[in-house]
């Protein structure tokens, strides 16, 4: 399921956002496809696409595995001379008690590889994470040309 929004950013040019719900493993594939389509349309290189779509796969899977459900919002922006987009992964799951620990390569509370967060940070140009225990998690990645 999707919802589209068109909005104008304080006269700074157009930004368009798309939100998709992430609640099943099939939604992870949809999230990947959406970001790939956008990057293709914006003429990012194949390596850029592979790198970012891999991170999208990790972060949307984390929503399913660790929070059950959530959503991904893609915000495309085209401001004077700067073209890029942000992806926001948001859930109202259990949150992360110790973010530094969770960001460490190899750390996993589910006996997995613990590569999702540390790897996504390495793969994306910009990566930021906020999480509150009992409230949820919000991760934002950004790419630009």
């Amino acid at each position: 399921m999707e919802k589209y929004q068109d909005s104008r950013d304080s006269g700074q040019g157009q930004s368009v956002s798309t939100t998709i719900f992430v609640a099943s493993y099939e939604d992870v594939i949809v999230a990947r496809q959406k970001v790939r389509e956008l990057m293709n349309e914006m003429k990012f290189s194949l390596l850029d696409q592979t790198r970012v779509v891999t991170a999208v796969s990790e972060l949307s899977r984390n929503i399913i595995v660790h929070a059950g459900k959530g959503e991904m919002t893609i915000i495309k922006y085209d401001e004077s001379g700067r073209r890029g987009f942000r992806c926001i992964f948001e859930d109202k799951g259990p949150g992360i008690a110790d973010i530094d620990l969770a960001m460490r390569e190899g750390y996993s509370t589910t006996n997995s590889l613990g590569l999702g967060l540390s790897g996504s940070k390495k793969l994306c140009k910009n990566f930021s994470i906020q999480s509150t225990r009992g409230k949820g998690t919000r991760i934002e990645i950004a790419e630009w040309k």
Binding site: T50, R51, T54, E58, L113, G119, K122
Partner: peptide, 8 residues
């Protein structure tokens, strides 16, 4: 390249 960067 991506797999290596990911750390797998």
């Amino acid at each position: 390249l991506t797999l290596i960067q990911l750390g797998l």
